[in-house]
């Protein structure tokens, strides 16, 4: 903590805002929904980072998860795209205004079923965005049908239907599409979720967070691998995630034997305290092997699965001016009369 921050009245962050300044409308989701826990984590993460709420764009698709941007950061613009198309909307808005901080919340149906194609292409382009998938393996708003992330052999509520199809692994696909920040977590592991969100928001490209977030109404029974009980029993953190933003001094000595450090492009630091595993998130082959193994035996690893901070976001690839395209003046966006005349002459 810096002196400046310590001087702030209690509860104020580095830009003088309280936690309550990051809140949104009251949630209309079911009591105990994992999504609400993630909403709280987003609110805390933004407060702790001292994010300017009016500089945030909240993006979402359609579904229970996509309702949640209404429940945080009331002072930020938000949008519900059509189902599965948050990625396309986000691509357009991020090009129109590169200064926005983009937080997207989608679901497993939205991202991995109807929106899978557009999601993968957005990841390929590497737009600068925190992309959270609140993954519960089912469609809540339409009463519990399987989604594409439901594990093979999962039982549907009521016990009559077993999912026969292979699940879509959002993390593995994201890595394959070139994503350089891929994490998996559990909504109930609020510390990990919060720190991963903070790190993701400082990543210079698309950061994909696949967060298992149980549907307490339709997919919280025995036979589901996305239930609260299953997640609690099986969660196996790869490491203990902490995030030190660039504006905070580093006060702890992070010993290489106990910690893995990831330095981000803006000088922020992700520290990963070693637990039972010796895991290096910069190794793509290791990450893919881990996901493959997890898929094979139902293991629920959480943490930062893959991270390479040397990332070139889409706006930079396109060499777009730093100021928002949206508000460029006519003097910039309309070529001169001389250019017009020259063009007309070329067709004669």
């Amino acid at each position: 903590m810096t002196e400046a921050v310590l001087d702030k009245p209690k509860g104020q962050n580095r830009i003088g805002l309280l936690l309550s300044d990051y809140k949104g409308a009251e949630s209309t989701l079911c009591a105990g929904c994992g999504h609400d826990a993630i909403t709280s984590s987003i609110i805390k993460a933004c407060h702790e980072l001292g994010i300017e709420p009016t500089g945030v764009a909240k993006l979402s698709g359609i579904g229970c998860s996509s309702k949640t941007p209404n429940y945080f950061l009331n002072q930020a613009h938000g949008i519900n795209a059509v189902h599965g198309r948050m990625s396309a909307i986000a691509t357009g808005s991020s090009l129109a205004n590169r200064t926005l901080t983009n937080i997207g919340v989608s679901g497993d149906g939205d991202t991995a079923s109807i929106g899978l194609g557009n999601f993968l292409h957005m990841v390929r382009r590497n737009i600068r965005m925190t992309y959270i998938v609140e993954n519960n393996g089912c469609y809540g708003l339409t009463k519990g049908q399987f989604s594409a992330t439901a594990d093979k052999g999962s039982l549907k509520k009521g016990g009559k239907e077993i999912n026969q199809n292979e699940p879509v692994d959002i993390c593995a696909l994201a890595i394959q599409m070139g994503c350089r920040f891929v994490a998996r977590s559990f909504s109930g592991d609020t510390n990990q979720v919060r720190n991963l969100i903070k790190a993701a928001m400082n990543h210079n490209g698309t950061a994909v967070l696949d967060i298992v977030s149980p549907c307490v109404t339709f997919n919280n029974h025995e036979g589901s691998t996305k239930s609260v009980t299953y997640a609690r029993l099986h969660e196996d953190p790869l490491h203990e995630v902490d995030f030190i933003p660039h504006f905070d001094p580093i006060t702890v000595n992070y010993d290489a034997g106990t910690y893995t450090k990831v330095e981000m492009h803006d000088g922020s630091l992700i520290t990963l305290k070693k637990l039972a595993h010796d895991y290096d998130p910069s190794d793509m082959d290791r990450a893919m092997a881990l996901l493959h193994e997890a898929a094979g035996n139902g293991h629920f690893y959480t943490g930062l699965i893959y991270c390479r901070p040397d990332s070139v976001p889409f706006g930079e690839q396109k060499n777009i001016v730093d100021v928002p395209l949206a508000t460029l003046p006519e003097s910039v966006t309309r070529p001169s009369r001389a250019v017009f005349n020259q063009l007309m002459a070329s067709f004669k």
């Binding site: 198309r85 357009g92 129109a96 205004n97 928002p324 949206a326």
Partner: peptide, 18 residues
């Protein structure tokens, strides 16, 4: 990647003011 994405990007850009 397809026309859905094309028009989605246009709406996203239009929403953000471009």
């Amino acid at each position: 990647e397809d026309e859905i994405a094309s028009i989605g990007m246009v709406l996203g850009a239009g929403w953000a003011g471009a």
